[in-house]
């Protein structure tokens, strides 16, 4: 068992809250077993910013709300054999996607930003300026679930997923025998 090369895993957090990454810790002591089998490559957990080599599994939290998200996701797709979306934001856009359905107008993006930074009833922005630093990535016209940008192989549902579900998925994928989740474990919240 220990002679086998460890599986390489990369992770990224796109338009999400990092909660799914935190939920990885909910695997609890099983994490120790898991770490015997895997090695983390590019990931906020390792602070490695670029792929050091091709990975077996890429785990994506969050959907795509800006160009940088798209760029990262495409990079993951190119560099990972299996791509796994984790959490509702990656799966269907999640909370950030609320802007998609609500902001129907000729200029949805402008309306959304004005609502957020200027007109919103609870907005406290004395400068009345919408942030526009050149370092900020351009926003997309709407929030896209990951599967609309690249092909996603598996999804781990939840907001955030429970430790059980994450473990079930990772253990299954690492053994090459992932057959879906126990129905009783599936949650979309």
């Amino acid at each position: 068992m220990s002679d086998l090369p460890k599986a390489r895993i990369a992770t990224a957090s796109l338009a999400g809250c990092f909660g799914c990454h935190m939920a990885l810790l909910d695997i609890d002591e099983r994490l120790i077993e898991l770490m015997k089998l895997v090695e983390f490559d590019r990931s906020p957990l390792t602070d490695i910013k670029r792929f050091t080599r091709r990975c077996d599994i890429g785990i994506i939290e969050g959907g795509c709300c800006n160009e940088e998200n798209v760029h990262v996701l495409q990079d993951f797709r190119r560099n990972c054999d299996i791509l796994v979306g984790i959490g509702q934001c990656a799966i269907m856009g999640g909370l950030p996607a609320m802007r998609n359905a609500i902001m129907h107008s000729d200029e949805p993006l402008r309306e959304c930003l004005e609502e957020a930074y200027i007109k919103g009833p609870f907005t406290q922005n004395k400068t009345q300026i919408i942030p526009n630093d050149p370092a900020l990535p351009l926003l997309l016209d709407k929030v896209y679930p990951c599967s609309e940008v690249v092909e996603i192989d598996y999804q781990i549902p939840g907001c955030a997923p429970t430790g059980d579900v994450i473990y079930e998925a990772l253990a299954g994928l690492l053994s090459g025998r992932f057959q879906g989740f126990e129905r009783e474990h599936i949650r979309f919240d």
Binding site: K142, G180, E184
Partner: peptide, 21 residues
């Protein structure tokens, strides 16, 4: 939601989101 759980609906959707207003 519960029906999706019961039916084990966890694969990436094949369908487009219609996002109605």
């Amino acid at each position: 939601q519960a029906m999706a759980y019961r039916l084990g609906m966890t694969e990436p959707t094949k369908f487009p989101y219609l996002e109605p207003c």
